[in-house]
Design a protein around this nucleic acid. Structure first.
Length: 750
DNA sequence: GCGTAACCTGTTTTT
DNA sequence: CAGGTTACGC
């Protein structure tokens, strides 16, 4: 068993300690995924456990795909039978199978966030509430929070604490919205993301026989990134492993960055209480990064109060200092990064794919992208707006969804007038009223329109209904690919896109082709026995991006948010936008707990780097369309300064004198120590060859002038007061200067 | 009912 | 800046 030899003691313990509850606290880069995959391999090969009896839960599709392929490499084809996937996808599968126990059909739809928000917007409108007060985002967050804590709408409405809470927030109707939202989802045979977990809990709570079945099926339960579980997920895990108690959770409290989604570090602490004979293993040796990076990360995370005690160390080399780059704007920041990447590649034979640029918010990618494009550096963006959220893709998926589930009102409302067929909002409203009056679904009204509304518009509606009915029949006869291409064509969607010859239209058309390819792939895959459209939709509902593996060229710089980067590692990492209000985000500055989460995010970012880390910030940045000046992030001064080198190599302009910054004071002063005095080094203007002072008697506002030392500028004003005429000139590189015209040599440029 | 144009608003992170 | 929403004229 040579694979055990390659592990250190605590790692090995984590692998072979298969019986009973076990918690692995794994520091960044300590071989956490290795322990998990080896543990599963060990279960299968050494212990002879049927992969069918093993359940491994992750948080992202990426992590689960990665782990599956690693295990396959170790144990071979047998790994196919493993139950492995995200919480959401695994329990969606189980819910489909057991749906009748919850009163749902097994073909229920899954609403994504956009569907949810649209539905909330509709309900708020119907109740004639103020949509400025009941913003969809806010309402959905509130509902989501309740579901993640397993608070049903019934409990919510009956609990005076929530009521009081909402009233003091001037949102007294929140409970009613929660109730209506749930009722409408149920009526639409739809579950949102949170429902998948919430309803799994309900299923297990109310159906002991079903719980029992899965308890015996999943003899071994493993959870990755345990610090990111919310109460709902925690209880599912606990229920499932209640009989065998063979539950192994792996996580790092220092990397908990999903509290905004209901994740609760308390789950790690509760775990020890729930399982008194819990085996706790700590992985503290970092194999990923240099001493500089590990120690710098430690110095940052020590500023947090809420954390488990551990001591992360590494035997790796000392490594290069962290470099700090300052830019004057977001665009310059991009250029700085591009230049630096160019240098690193040149000097150290680094490949693009070993480099990542990480940022706090998706919107920051623009400036970086542009700079990389100009520098001819290949890059790819991970995340961002997901493929399946694109308008044209969602349009088609809505058709497919509706043909499978006619209760799906969000899908119906989306497609009923798409492409334009003369059924406007007015008609739709009328039909909704009719549906509500008769207590039937919208589709029942649409499909038998003449029974409900006589009149001219009914013709278009009837045609639409007839088309959908024909789709429903075709779907019975065809596989997913044939059905999808038939529907895309017959609905007129494809033609509409084809006729759009703009660049965006072309790319939309290509995206649709790509979707059809993905469906074709699904149908052709040996693994999928059920090739129906319904089966495809089940697979696709929780996917976020199409596999990029087919891209022939993998040597690209990776751009992504820090959240997406969790679990990954790169030789060189650029962490951009180290500015107050951006990172930490201004949304997170309200409480200590929130700031600590941001700090953990910073910790995650630092620890992605293997060899070298660059931190960059800009002093000004375009935000919501307007140029705003920025201060360096407070986090910068939390990094022990002995690990940081201030780098001016790529800078065009001298570092400014210390700003009156409340934060980063030590940082700015250290910057200033080495900074050249303004006006002395970088900007000795070389006068034009033909420089000759002009006669300045006619000098007026707005003229363009050249000064032998200060260079070019524009005249702001001329002061004639007194004997000495003075001119105020705004120089391009030196700011505003007041010059005595009797002395100053100025050349007027016309 | 449809299309255009002005307007407004908001930017955290993901399943 | 960009997406979504509203107001208007056809």
């Amino acid at each position: 068993m040579d694979y055990l030899e390659s592990l250190n003691d605590p790692q090995r313990e984590g692998v072979i300690n298969t019986e009973g509850p076990c918690m692995v606290i794994a520091g960044a880069g300590s071989g956490k995924t290795r322990v998990l995959t080896y543990r599963i391999a060990h279960l299968i090969q050494a212990k002879g456990i049927d992969p069918f009896n093993i359940l491994a839960l992750t948080f992202t599709n990426k992590a689960s795909a990665e782990m599956r392929s690693r295990i396959e490499r170790m144990v071979g084809i047998e790994a196919k039978n493993l139950w492995m996937g995200t919480f959401h996808s695994v329990f969606a599968k189980i819910l489909r199978y057991e749906a009748d126990r919850l009163g749902y059909p097994s073909n229920f739809s899954i609403y994504d966030t956009e569907d949810s928000k649209t539905l909330i917007r509709q309900i708020v409108k119907e109740l004639q509430l103020d949509d400025k007060v009941y913003k969809p985002n806010l309402v959905l967050n509130r509902i989501s929070g309740a579901k993640n804590r397993l608070v049903s709408w019934q409990e919510y409405i009956n609990n005076p604490i929530y009521q009081a809470d909402d009233e003091s927030a001037m949102k007294p109707h929140m409970g009613k919205l929660y109730k209506m939202y749930c009722e409408r989802c149920f009526r639409a045979s739809a579950m949102d993301f949170d429902d998948l977990l919430f309803n799994t809990n309900v299923l297990f709570r109310d159906n002991p026989d079903i719980l029992n079945k899965y308890q015996h099926r999943f003899k071994y339960v493993l959870v990755d990134e345990f610090q990111d579980t919310n109460l709902s997920q925690y209880l599912i895990t606990k229920r499932l492993s209640a009989v065998n108690q063979n539950v192994c959770v792996v996580g790092d409290d220092a990397q908990s960055i999903y509290a905004f989604r209901g994740a609760d570090i308390k789950n790690i602490l509760n775990f020890e209480k729930d399982y008194p004979d819990l085996k706790v293993i700590k992985l503290e040796q970092n194999y990923r990064s240099t001493k500089v990076i590990v120690n710098a990360a430690n110095s940052v995370i020590n500023n947090n109060t809420a954390q488990l005690k551990k001591d992360i160390w590494t035997a790796n080399e000392e490594g290069d200092l962290i470099e700090l780059l300052k830019a004057n704007s977001d665009n310059e920041e991009g250029k700085l990064v591009a230049n630096s990447i160019f240098e690193e590649k040149l000097n150290h034979q680094i490949r693009n794919q070993e480099i990542a640029v990480l940022y706090r918010t998706n919107s920051q990618s623009r400036a970086i992208e542009e700079a990389l494009r100009r520098a001819n550096i290949k890059y790819k963006i991970v995340g961002g707006l997901s493929f399946y959220q694109r308008k044209e893709i969602k349009d088609i998926l809505s058709y497919l969804r509706f043909v499978i589930n006619q209760n799906d009102e969000q899908a119906l409302r989306r497609i009923i007038n798409l492409p334009k067929r003369g059924i406007g909002p007015g008609s739709v409203d009328k039909m909704i009223v009719a549906a509500n009056d008769h207590g039937v679904t919208l589709w029942e009204v649409v499909s038998t329109i003449f029974q409900f509304i006589p009149g001219r518009i009914t013709n278009a509606i009837d045609q639409f209904a007839t088309m959908i009915k024909s789709f429903m029949i075709e779907v019975q006869k065809k596989d997913a690919y044939e059905a999808a291409s038939y529907i895309t064509k017959q609905s007129g969607l494809l033609r509409e896109l084809y006729e759009d010859k703009t660049i965006e239209g072309l790319s939309r058309y290509e995206n649709v082709q790509e979707l059809l390819n993905a469906i074709k792939e699904f149908v052709d895959s040996e693994e999928n026995t059920d090739k129906s459209l319904g089966a495809f939709l089940q697979e696709v509902a929780l996917l976020t991006s199409v596999d990029e593996d087919k891209d022939e060229d993998n040597d690209k710089v990776t751009l992504m948010t820090i959240h997406m980067a969790k679990g990954l590692e790169f030789k060189i990492v650029y962490l951009v936008g180290m500015e107050e209000d951006l990172f930490p985000s201004q949304m997170m500055l309200t409480s200590r707990a929130d700031l600590e989460e941001e700090r953990r995010l910073f910790y995650v970012a630092i620890t992605r780097a293997e060899r070298k880390l660059f931190l960059t910030y800009a002093t000004s940045r375009y935000r919501f369309g307007r140029l705003k000046s920025c201060e360096p992030s407070r986090f910068l001064e939390e990094v022990d300064s002995k690990y940081i080198k201030v780098n001016r190599k790529f800078q065009k302009e001298p570092i400014l004198p210390p700003q009156t910054s409340h934060y980063a004071k030590s940082l700015v002063s250290s910057v200033n120590r080495t900074a050249p005095k303004q006006n002395t080094i970088n900007y000795t203007h070389t006068p034009s060859d033909d420089f000759k002072a002009s006669d300045t008697s006619g000098l007026t506002h707005g003229m363009k002038v050249e000064h032998p030392k200060f260079g070019f500028g524009n005249v702001v004003s001329v002061d004639i007061e007194g004997a000495n005429r003075k001119a105020k000139v705004l120089f391009d590189n030196f700011g505003e200067k007041t010059l005595l015209l009797s002395f100053a040599k100025l050349k007027i440029h016309t």
